[in-house]
Design a protein around this nucleic acid. Sequence first.
DNA 1: ACTATTGGCGCG
DNA 2: AAAGCGCGCCAATAGT
Length: 550
Amino acid sequence: MDVVVAAGAEGVHLALDGDAATGSVVPAAQVPDRVRALERERPRWVWADTAATYPVLLRAGVRVERCHDLRLCHAILRHAAATASSALATAPPGPWDAPAADGPGRAPSLLDDLAPAVGPDEVLAEHARQRAALALAADPGRLRLLLAAESAGALIAAEMSHDGLPWDRGVHDRLLTELLGPRPPQGARPSRLEALAGQVRELLDAPSLNPDSPPELLRALRAAGLDVTSTSKWELAELDHPVVAPLLAYKRLARLLSANGWAWMDAWISPATAGRRGRFHPDYVPGGVVSGRWATRGGGALQLPKQVRGAVVPDPGWKLVVADAAQLEPRVLAAVARDEQMARAGRGADLYQGLVDAGVVERRAHAKVAMLGAMYGATTGDAGQLMPRLARAYPRAIAVVERAAQAGERGGTVSTWLGRTSPPPPEEWYAVQRRASEADADEAARRRARRHARDRGRFTRNFVVQGSAAEWALCWMADLRLRLRALDDGAAHLVFFLHDEVIVHTPAHLADDVAAAAHEAAAAAGRLLFGDFPVDFPLDVAVVGSYADA
DNA sequence: ACTATTGGCGCG
DNA sequence: AAAGCGCGCCAATAGT
């Protein structure tokens, strides 16, 4: 059963089975109670924008099992090759093509969230357009699954933002103090950082140098006789000079301070209360990356450095279950390509070791660099050298990424396993190609065009793998969420997601059940996407009292 | 004084 | 200065 939810001038419309005639209009304040009551029938909630609507329900203590997010699904169907001829895809841009509005904090009420342009009639119309577009697809099952997974992801993102990642401010402060020195007054450098800056100035004989300024630092390095073209740590690490060690230490600590220092803690970590740690509330953006990966807005949740993960600590009596999928992308590639040989290499817990055992490469490190090179489009270095051996051992898998790269180089699009289609190149890209193919094009123009073409090829090559892996991860997480809801009293809940890794916050006595659920969900996601194709998705799972111990 | 870009680096 | 993809964020700097 579908229940369509849409805000109108007189109240919020709730229509059963997409039929406006059977619907009712209720004041916004009563919506959470009505949703709670209807949820007992386990409907699929159809609404314009989970990020706008669901936080309101969550704040009222209401959770739902399933939804269909029209905005996210519109974006997929609008660009999918499989629905390219639909009315939805061929219409001029409309309200559904607007980017996601701001995050969870923006929504004072259901009524205010949904612009009149997307009133009840328009919501019903869009739902109908999406059904019509799906009906047109040659293989609608996959797209249907993608839309369900994307929508489930939207629910999870809102729930995780609402619940927050448990965070111990005391541990965080101790970490910072040990590494940087005590918290300084506003604007001042912490003592340890200031000491390192002093050493750098001394060793470079540059008494007024600001080491945070790349141009200044580069000039000082060159004045000291060092042959560098940038101030990046890769280049600095090559040098043999006493300034290298303190400078790299400075950069590392300066980064920690600016990205995840005390100011960040004050801005992003809510205070602890009795028996409960503080919380980090990231603002996730499902579908925020073209490949289907999530992005975040503010807080940098997807870049939490290993340095501060010790501050992620469960509430007293609770545990963190940290689960990540081992070598997800190559396994997904094997499945997408139906490459049984490569899937066989991944039968154990370590696909890279599997390549060694199969005699494809001598060392595990080579297997890793070769696989990454195949998926990212490496042409030089170790990765480039190893490509022919990989292609000989796994021709089907390599053919998939090569075909994707060729499509991109020609300016075409590619699609993931479930049918998310890559964006076409920007107009500028075509202009560059046209210029190079004119009769009087010079060598520079042709080189430029070839470089653009290869850049595009690497993007589409990676898109099919990264995007299909993102689909597996969404299915995994959605399945795990349902298992957690069914577990005991439903207390265990997802608190973090990072592309191929999740963290569940759980009462300690349920931790083993949660770990088992994570494994079961991984197997279920593999079957859901790839049927009986024999590919494994093993997890590394740890039950810990700190994220640093995972 | 303000906004946009750049260099650099964190994560997968 | 990364080789080889995808992001977001910060401080400094360039541009207006």
